[in-house]
Amino acid sequence: MRFTKLAQSVISGAVLAGALAIGIGTAQAADLRIGVEGAYPPFSEKTASGELIGFDIDIANALCEKMGVTCELVEQDWDGIIPALQAKKYDAIVASMSITEDRKKVVDFTKKYYNTPAKFAAKDGMFSDDSPAAMAGKRIGVQRGTIHDDFLTSVYKDSEIVRYATQDEVYLDITAGRIDAMLADSLAIDEGFLKTDAGKGYSFFGADHSEVEYFGEGAGIAIRKGEDELREKLNDAIDAIRADGTYDKIQAKYFDFDIYGG
Protein backbone atom coordinates (compact mmCIF):
# COMPACT_ATOMS: atom_id res chain seq x y z
CA MET A 1 0.00 0.00 0.00
CA ARG A 2 2.46 2.60 -1.17
CA PHE A 3 -0.25 5.15 -1.73
CA THR A 4 -1.37 4.96 1.86
CA LYS A 5 2.20 5.54 2.89
CA LEU A 6 2.42 8.63 0.71
CA ALA A 7 -0.85 9.90 2.10
CA GLN A 8 0.34 9.21 5.62
CA SER A 9 3.55 11.09 5.09
CA VAL A 10 1.63 14.02 3.59
CA ILE A 11 -0.67 14.10 6.59
CA SER A 12 2.08 13.63 9.16
CA GLY A 13 4.08 16.32 7.37
CA ALA A 14 1.19 18.72 7.75
CA VAL A 15 0.81 17.85 11.43
CA LEU A 16 4.54 18.28 11.98
CA ALA A 17 4.51 21.64 10.18
CA GLY A 18 1.68 22.76 12.44
CA ALA A 19 3.52 21.58 15.53
CA LEU A 20 6.69 23.39 14.39
CA ALA A 21 4.75 26.58 13.78
CA ILE A 22 3.41 26.46 17.32
CA GLY A 23 6.82 25.53 18.76
CA ILE A 24 8.74 28.34 17.06
CA GLY A 25 8.30 30.78 19.87
CA THR A 26 9.78 28.46 22.47
CA ALA A 27 12.37 26.47 20.48
CA GLN A 28 15.99 26.76 21.56
CA ALA A 29 18.40 27.65 18.76
CA ALA A 30 20.51 24.58 17.92
CA ASP A 31 24.29 24.83 17.44
CA LEU A 32 24.13 23.14 14.07
CA ARG A 33 21.28 22.65 11.66
CA ILE A 34 21.41 19.65 9.34
CA GLY A 35 19.40 19.24 6.16
CA VAL A 36 17.91 15.77 5.59
CA GLU A 37 15.49 14.42 3.03
CA GLY A 38 12.97 12.07 4.64
CA ALA A 39 11.85 10.16 1.53
CA TYR A 40 14.76 7.86 0.76
CA PRO A 41 14.39 4.67 2.76
CA PRO A 42 16.27 3.07 4.43
CA PHE A 43 18.63 6.06 4.64
CA SER A 44 16.02 8.58 5.56
CA GLU A 45 12.29 8.18 5.95
CA LYS A 46 9.44 9.16 8.20
CA THR A 47 7.41 6.96 10.50
CA ALA A 48 3.64 7.18 10.61
CA SER A 49 3.97 9.61 13.49
CA GLY A 50 6.22 11.91 11.48
CA GLU A 51 9.46 10.96 13.18
CA LEU A 52 12.57 10.92 10.99
CA ILE A 53 14.43 7.61 10.98
CA GLY A 54 17.10 5.93 8.87
CA PHE A 55 20.81 5.49 8.37
CA ASP A 56 21.47 9.13 7.44
CA ILE A 57 19.46 10.33 10.43
CA ASP A 58 21.35 8.07 12.86
CA ILE A 59 24.71 9.09 11.35
CA ALA A 60 23.79 12.78 11.62
CA ASN A 61 22.84 12.37 15.27
CA ALA A 62 25.96 10.33 16.05
CA LEU A 63 28.21 12.97 14.45
CA CYS A 64 26.54 15.72 16.47
CA GLU A 65 27.04 13.75 19.65
CA LYS A 66 30.74 13.22 18.81
CA MET A 67 31.21 16.92 18.09
CA GLY A 68 29.42 17.77 21.32
CA VAL A 69 26.92 20.10 19.69
CA THR A 70 23.14 20.20 19.69
CA CYS A 71 21.64 19.62 16.29
CA GLU A 72 18.36 20.31 14.63
CA LEU A 73 17.35 18.17 11.66
CA VAL A 74 15.65 20.18 8.94
CA GLU A 75 13.64 18.34 6.34
CA GLN A 76 14.02 19.49 2.76
CA ASP A 77 12.90 18.11 -0.61
CA TRP A 78 15.77 16.78 -2.66
CA ASP A 79 15.55 19.18 -5.59
CA GLY A 80 15.98 22.17 -3.30
CA ILE A 81 18.48 20.62 -0.94
CA ILE A 82 21.61 22.45 -2.19
CA PRO A 83 19.93 25.84 -2.75
CA ALA A 84 18.54 25.69 0.81
CA LEU A 85 22.06 25.05 2.13
CA GLN A 86 23.27 28.13 0.23
CA ALA A 87 20.32 30.08 1.66
CA LYS A 88 21.55 29.10 5.18
CA LYS A 89 18.39 27.21 6.08
CA TYR A 90 20.87 24.69 7.51
CA ASP A 91 24.63 24.29 7.68
CA ALA A 92 25.26 20.76 6.44
CA ILE A 93 23.49 18.12 4.34
CA VAL A 94 23.45 14.52 5.52
CA ALA A 95 21.30 12.99 2.80
CA SER A 96 23.26 10.28 0.99
CA MET A 97 24.64 12.93 -1.34
CA SER A 98 27.28 11.59 -3.68
CA ILE A 99 30.49 13.56 -3.93
CA THR A 100 30.73 14.60 -7.60
CA GLU A 101 32.78 17.11 -9.55
CA ASP A 102 29.67 19.06 -10.57
CA ARG A 103 28.48 19.44 -6.99
CA LYS A 104 31.98 20.35 -5.82
CA LYS A 105 31.66 23.47 -7.96
CA VAL A 106 28.91 24.73 -5.68
CA VAL A 107 29.51 23.09 -2.28
CA ASP A 108 32.35 21.52 -0.27
CA PHE A 109 32.25 17.92 0.90
CA THR A 110 33.58 15.99 3.85
CA LYS A 111 35.12 12.60 3.26
CA LYS A 112 32.66 9.88 2.28
CA TYR A 113 30.61 8.16 4.95
CA TYR A 114 29.50 5.31 2.71
CA ASN A 115 29.78 4.15 -0.88
CA THR A 116 27.42 1.77 -2.64
CA PRO A 117 26.95 1.19 -6.39
CA ALA A 118 23.96 2.22 -8.47
CA LYS A 119 21.87 -0.47 -10.13
CA PHE A 120 18.90 -0.90 -12.42
CA ALA A 121 15.82 -2.79 -11.30
CA ALA A 122 12.70 -3.93 -13.13
CA LYS A 123 10.09 -6.67 -13.22
CA ASP A 124 11.66 -10.13 -13.04
CA GLY A 125 12.94 -11.25 -16.41
CA MET A 126 11.99 -8.08 -18.27
CA PHE A 127 15.60 -7.16 -19.04
CA SER A 128 18.78 -9.20 -18.99
CA ASP A 129 21.14 -6.49 -20.11
CA ASP A 130 21.40 -2.85 -19.06
CA SER A 131 23.28 -1.51 -22.07
CA PRO A 132 21.90 1.69 -23.60
CA ALA A 133 21.03 -0.30 -26.73
CA ALA A 134 18.98 -2.83 -24.77
CA MET A 135 17.09 -0.05 -23.00
CA ALA A 136 16.44 2.10 -26.07
CA GLY A 137 12.84 3.27 -26.27
CA LYS A 138 12.11 2.12 -22.72
CA ARG A 139 10.97 4.33 -19.89
CA ILE A 140 13.39 4.64 -17.01
CA GLY A 141 12.27 6.29 -13.77
CA VAL A 142 14.73 8.26 -11.68
CA GLN A 143 14.77 10.88 -8.98
CA ARG A 144 15.31 14.32 -10.50
CA GLY A 145 18.67 16.00 -9.92
CA THR A 146 20.48 12.89 -8.66
CA ILE A 147 23.71 11.40 -9.97
CA HIS A 148 21.54 8.64 -11.40
CA ASP A 149 19.60 11.28 -13.35
CA ASP A 150 22.91 12.71 -14.67
CA PHE A 151 24.13 9.27 -15.66
CA LEU A 152 20.91 8.35 -17.47
CA THR A 153 20.64 11.73 -19.19
CA SER A 154 24.24 11.47 -20.46
CA VAL A 155 24.44 7.78 -21.33
CA TYR A 156 20.90 6.52 -22.06
CA LYS A 157 20.04 9.06 -24.74
CA ASP A 158 17.65 6.73 -26.58
CA SER A 159 15.55 5.90 -23.52
CA GLU A 160 12.75 8.04 -22.16
CA ILE A 161 13.85 9.36 -18.77
CA VAL A 162 10.94 10.01 -16.40
CA ARG A 163 11.96 12.27 -13.51
CA TYR A 164 10.34 12.26 -10.07
CA ALA A 165 10.66 14.52 -7.06
CA THR A 166 11.19 11.62 -4.63
CA GLN A 167 12.38 8.02 -4.86
CA ASP A 168 9.12 6.89 -3.23
CA GLU A 169 7.22 8.15 -6.28
CA VAL A 170 9.50 6.12 -8.56
CA TYR A 171 8.54 3.00 -6.59
CA LEU A 172 4.84 3.88 -6.89
CA ASP A 173 5.04 4.22 -10.64
CA ILE A 174 7.12 1.13 -11.29
CA THR A 175 4.49 -0.95 -9.48
CA ALA A 176 1.80 0.86 -11.45
CA GLY A 177 3.69 -0.12 -14.61
CA ARG A 178 4.13 3.42 -15.87
CA ILE A 179 7.88 2.96 -16.14
CA ASP A 180 9.76 -0.10 -17.39
CA ALA A 181 12.83 0.18 -15.17
CA MET A 182 14.46 2.39 -12.60
CA LEU A 183 17.97 3.37 -11.63
CA ALA A 184 19.00 4.32 -8.11
CA ASP A 185 21.43 3.41 -5.38
CA SER A 186 21.42 -0.38 -5.12
CA LEU A 187 20.95 -0.29 -1.37
CA ALA A 188 18.11 2.17 -1.50
CA ILE A 189 16.29 0.01 -4.05
CA ASP A 190 17.00 -3.18 -2.16
CA GLU A 191 15.92 -2.01 1.30
CA GLY A 192 13.36 0.56 0.22
CA PHE A 193 11.61 -1.51 -2.44
CA LEU A 194 12.75 -5.03 -3.32
CA LYS A 195 12.54 -6.25 0.27
CA THR A 196 9.09 -4.74 0.82
CA ASP A 197 5.73 -6.24 -0.22
CA ALA A 198 5.43 -3.81 -3.10
CA GLY A 199 8.75 -5.03 -4.50
CA LYS A 200 7.74 -8.69 -4.89
CA GLY A 201 8.35 -9.83 -8.45
CA TYR A 202 10.98 -7.17 -9.11
CA SER A 203 14.72 -7.60 -9.18
CA PHE A 204 18.05 -6.03 -10.09
CA PHE A 205 19.53 -6.53 -13.52
CA GLY A 206 22.74 -5.48 -15.26
CA ALA A 207 26.02 -4.37 -13.76
CA ASP A 208 27.01 -2.49 -10.62
CA HIS A 209 27.50 1.11 -11.66
CA SER A 210 30.12 3.14 -9.88
CA GLU A 211 31.73 5.06 -12.74
CA VAL A 212 33.56 7.80 -10.83
CA GLU A 213 32.85 10.27 -13.62
CA TYR A 214 29.13 10.14 -12.81
CA PHE A 215 28.83 8.55 -9.42
CA GLY A 216 31.72 10.15 -7.60
CA GLU A 217 33.60 8.64 -4.72
CA GLY A 218 30.73 7.93 -2.35
CA ALA A 219 28.25 9.79 -0.19
CA GLY A 220 29.59 12.71 1.82
CA ILE A 221 28.31 15.58 3.90
CA ALA A 222 27.87 18.78 1.92
CA ILE A 223 28.61 22.17 3.50
CA ARG A 224 28.85 25.70 2.13
CA LYS A 225 32.07 26.54 0.35
CA GLY A 226 34.93 27.78 2.49
CA GLU A 227 33.66 26.54 5.85
CA ASP A 228 36.82 24.55 6.44
CA GLU A 229 36.52 24.51 10.20
CA LEU A 230 33.15 22.79 10.07
CA ARG A 231 34.43 20.36 7.45
CA GLU A 232 37.40 19.36 9.60
CA LYS A 233 35.16 18.89 12.62
CA LEU A 234 32.81 16.68 10.61
CA ASN A 235 35.74 14.71 9.14
CA ASP A 236 37.13 14.11 12.63
CA ALA A 237 33.69 13.04 13.82
CA ILE A 238 33.35 10.58 10.91
CA ASP A 239 36.76 9.11 11.84
CA ALA A 240 35.72 8.95 15.48
CA ILE A 241 32.46 7.05 14.90
CA ARG A 242 34.28 4.73 12.48
CA ALA A 243 36.94 4.03 15.12
CA ASP A 244 34.80 3.58 18.23
CA GLY A 245 32.24 1.19 16.73
CA THR A 246 29.30 3.64 16.63
CA TYR A 247 29.27 3.45 12.83
CA ASP A 248 29.21 -0.35 12.84
CA LYS A 249 26.39 -0.36 15.36
CA ILE A 250 24.29 1.97 13.22
CA GLN A 251 25.13 0.04 10.07
CA ALA A 252 24.07 -3.25 11.68
CA LYS A 253 20.65 -1.76 12.39
CA TYR A 254 19.95 -1.41 8.68
CA PHE A 255 22.27 -3.62 6.67
CA ASP A 256 23.81 -7.05 6.99
CA PHE A 257 27.00 -6.12 5.16
CA ASP A 258 29.57 -3.33 5.03
CA ILE A 259 28.38 -0.29 3.13
CA TYR A 260 31.44 1.89 3.79
CA GLY A 261 33.17 0.43 0.73
CA GLY A 262 36.86 0.08 0.00
Binding site: D79, G80, I82, P83, D102, R103, V106, V107, R144, G145, D149, V162, R163, Y164, A165, D173
Partner: peptide, 22 residues
Protein backbone atom coordinates in the same frame (compact mmCIF):
# COMPACT_ATOMS: atom_id res chain seq x y z
CA UNK B 1 4.71 19.00 -12.99
CA UNK B 2 4.15 17.06 -9.75
CA UNK B 3 3.17 13.96 -11.73
CA UNK B 4 6.24 13.99 -14.04
CA UNK B 5 4.74 16.03 -16.92
CA UNK B 6 7.31 18.47 -18.25
CA UNK B 7 5.15 21.60 -18.33
CA UNK B 8 6.60 25.11 -17.96
CA UNK B 9 7.24 24.63 -14.24
CA UNK B 10 8.51 21.10 -14.89
CA UNK B 11 11.01 22.52 -17.40
CA UNK B 12 12.14 25.06 -14.80
CA UNK B 13 12.57 22.33 -12.21
CA UNK B 14 14.53 20.14 -14.62
CA UNK B 15 16.91 23.02 -15.31
CA UNK B 16 17.20 23.83 -11.59
CA UNK B 17 18.03 20.22 -10.78
CA UNK B 18 20.60 20.02 -13.55
CA UNK B 19 22.67 22.94 -12.25
CA UNK B 20 21.84 22.83 -8.51
CA UNK B 21 20.22 26.26 -8.71
CA UNK B 22 16.81 27.50 -7.73
Amino acid sequence: STVTVVDILGAGRTVNAKYYIY
